[in-house]
Design a protein around this nucleic acid. Sequence first.
RNA 1: GCCCCCGUAGCUCAGUGGACAGAGCAGGAGCCUUCUAAGCUCUUGGUCGAAGGUUCGAAUCCUUCCGGGGGCGCCA
Length: 587
Amino acid sequence: MSLLFDLTRLMESGFEAAGIDPAFGAVSVSDRPDLGQFQCNGGLAAARTVGRNPRQIAQQVTDKIESDPRLAEVSIAGPGFINLSITDQALADYLEDAALDTRLGVAPAENPLRVVVDYAGPNVAKAMHVGHLRSTIIGDTLKRLFRLSGHQVLGDAHFGDWGLQMGMLIIATRRRHPDLPHFDQSYSGPYPDSPPISLTDLQEWYPQIAQEVEGDEQVANLARKATTDLQSGRPGYVALWEHFVEVSRHSQQQDFSDLGVEFDLWYGESTVAHLLRPLVDDFLARGVAVRSEGAVLVEVAQPDDKAEIAPLVLETSLGAFLYGTTDVATIQMRVEEMEADLVVYVVDARQSYHFQQVFRAAELGGLVGGTALEHVRFGTMNAADGTPFRTREGGVLRLRDLIEMVTEAAAARLDESDLAADYSPEERAVISRQIGIAALKFGDLINNRASDYLFDLRRFTALEGKTGPYLQMAAVRTGSILERAARKEWGPGPVQAPDHEAERRLMLRILQLPEVIERALELRAPNHLAEFAYAVAGDFSRFYESCHILSEPDPTRRASWLRLVETVRRVLALLLDLLGIEIPARM
RNA sequence: GCCCCCGUAGCUCAGUGGACAGAGCAGGAGCCUUCUAAGCUCUUGGUCGAAGGUUCGAAUCCUUCCGGGGGCGCCA
């Protein structure tokens, strides 16, 4: 189906004919475009295993395949690299196939899986801040990528609503509002409908109480007790907790909506609350968990561990469940009820130890079965001094403020544009938001997921160079050309063999799409998509400069170019959709 | 103390054991009477932290060291 796939098959047949394992036939895009469009290094790798000279192997292989009509050039270079180029006609034929394929040559998965993507992880009492950005947009892209590849995917926000934090918030609220009926044990309801607290209150109180809990064992015990009471269903606490959840979620959904991120499920830790007690009792009964100093824990260490791994605490000595408990129970739900084949946790790398404990505990408890559990870790967003990013005031930068900043930067750029002089204020607002979000998302997704990176506002608000708006610009240009052509009643036609270098390079680039998608999925690496989208946009921009489509006099060539432009448009649209970036109508 | 991650151009970052290590920004020189100049062309810039090792071949794999970050039983 795909060009690279077919070339690999061809080389495999060459290796096989030479009596060598066809697995050495892998063809990739050339690192040396001056020597060929594609390369195969299999001869070098095979030399050792078969004990023959790599150049001789390469010669034998190329003798077998060089008569293939698709190949324009086959050569052997250096110690045994095989360089290949295809004919312009073959290139045009492949592009025609891709252009007429609704999936642009991207093959759906052979074995579709049920996948749960656990991402974003908003918490009660916390407005979304920059720390949530990575999980949210990496997770969202992976979700779209799995879905595109034909898997059955559910994205779950995994709301943090059931741990010790809830107890902390309860005692913090009791301090400020001791007279609330929620704290009166003799009160039998009903409790007020409207929240007695706001998210602002919670956000202000939370850091204070968290600090106290850390330093003062008495306060900590109060919080633990309140957590236990909530978890065992004390009505006033439950009613209060529902308000916490409501005010938090309301604000967070606004932010997700601005980012264009939607969840299929908004389950929380509390969703599995009813599973916790039975799970812990069951683990104890089966000897998976043990009691130690009043707490219930699972010994997850294994003999061949390099480092000591602490047991996972399922229940505290005061009877409260922790997030590790809900995580194990959530695995149970995802495996047993949702029948997931794969669960992907898009969570900060700093939690890898926790996930190791949780995955092992679930495995020891026999909850996992054949389901794959995968922590897709990402690096920390750091400030210039190398420590996790904070604002000057010491707090975290709210996502809302960041979105506003990038949107304003985009609006300012729009104001400078002559082209936008007649855009209405409403349209300007829409475009600015689309461009701002694009800058923000691309600025994050272009990074290798696993690396830490420096938070630099300049980078997120940059609109030139390797940025989201650059991709949008290319897409907008394709739209503009197709629209103008349509007005003259010029449509796309059969793809002709290229006769400009920029045209040839663009065609070759587009044909890489299937392998890029495959690789990005395999590595769970959105940056491969972002990098490729940038390359497509760049090749298109160069083509656009050197081949003036609408003034091309030859109608056959013009129609071919329009097909190419249309295909670029579809490729960019597909990639930008995966990256969660919208294409403005104009900019 | 133990474990994990990272160290690549002035800055921010890419980089499937393969050929001369790439991009953006910043710096320098150009290109708008033609499809959107948020663009394009050219250009300056590197002992891939250091030293050993494995390999025909190492930024990539192994070991040690130096430097930075993170994690390590009842927080998330």
